[in-house]
Write a protein that binds this DNA or RNA. Structure first.
Lengths: 195, 195
DNA sequence: TTGATTTGAACGTATGTTCAGTTAAATCTT
DNA sequence: AAGATTTAACTGAACATACGTTCAAATCAA
């Protein structure tokens, strides 16, 4: 039997990416073989090379897609002029966006070292773009005398680390709902930078 | 040539662990081979099995040693009765301890999924022990009306995530000294939980 | 000479990737 | 509508290389 019936490129492609995302997140890029990914899709290993030139590019494209989505989603959000309102909007957006994509987030933070130098540079650039948005909010708040922040760059990284940490414990049917989590973190963020 | 001159068990053992720590941190557990570790030590792969029963145990023992050191060091620190002073002591201790061991920290946070279930349970237990210490400080502060924290468990994880995040950017000869970093984070932590 | 330490080769298995050959669907021809 | 042809998708086997681990033999320190 040479081909499972009814399978097409436009359906197998996404399935390859989904399987890779899920397996990379669970076991790590280096620990997952192309044969495992193929098995999850229900196909032989050779068939994967219709959808990616190699394993490394498969990882890169998952991370690239995640970062693109992140920046696009952020771009579609409101940007309040008031620094504190902008900070709160950023906080809620970050928690909400990341909580909904635990696997992509996990990969994007854990597998950076498995990217080739060129691919790494691209992802790192996108990450910096995102981080700079928070940094700008903080700087504006400082300029307007609303925030007490001695180093906007360090503070932005500290806050992002805190917010992304939600993903290590948050579960959809856990003790706290996402809005409750948002509220707790918003409180902390607001107070942490307030004058 | 059968043996490099002057090598002994009590010198090779630590060298194996050092090489493994450094290589695991740089490339990840799954991506590092026993032959690479042996090469870094200057020995053949087979010789490693005088110092570890297998690769998995080598990883586990690195993480176990790190967590034991963490808890022992923390146990040797002063425990101020005043909640705010205790929180500040914890914050400074955490930053200082972790900044000095970037490789062990990196491994302990990234390679949890490569532990066998039994080994994972041990490490996770130690991590929880540490985290509970911060949680207790927060709870005491709440009980004494000094902290405004709605959920001590979530807050403790948020703060630890923020503090551990220092390791992603801190470099010894960077723009900021460690005491300066401590100061910035202490300010944020204090304000974030204050009433 | 004894006992600890290391070598070097071998074990079976797995890896990422390639590719000629096979199959099914899409398109074209009549 | 039916048959012929083209194209895209996939298989299955093979490639060279690497993996973790074992172990008899060799080497060195005491």
């Amino acid at each position: 039997m040479a081909r499972t019936q009814g399978s097409h490129s436009d359906i197998t492609g996404p399935r390859v990416r989904d399987a890779a995302l899920s397996l990379f997140a669970r076991h790590g890029y280096a620990a997952v073989s192309m044969r495992q990914i193929a098995g999850a899709v229900g196909v032989q290993a050779g068939a994967l090379y219709n959808y990616t030139p190699d394993k490394q590019t498969l990882l890169y494209e998952l991370m690239k897609a995640h970062m693109d989505e992140l920046l696009a989603a952020r771009g579609g959000e409101p940007w309040p002029g008031d620094p504190m309102a902008a900070l709160e909007a950023f906080t809620r957006f970050h928690i909400r966006f990341h909580a909904r994509r635990p696997e992509a987030v996990f990969i994007s933070y854990m597998e950076l070292r498995n990217l080739s130098p060129e691919n790494f540079a691209v992802i790192e650039g996108l990450r910096k773009t995102y981080e700079t948005q928070l940094q700008d909010i903080l700087q504006r708040g400082v300029a307007e005398g609303r925030f007490a922040v001695t180093d906007a760059r360090i503070t932005s990284m500290a806050l992002i680390a805190m917010l992304t940490g939600v993903n290590t414990w948050f579960r959809d049917k856990g003790r706290l709902s996402l809005p409750e989590v948002e509220e707790i973190y918003c409180d902390m963020v607001r107070k942490a930078v307030a004058v």
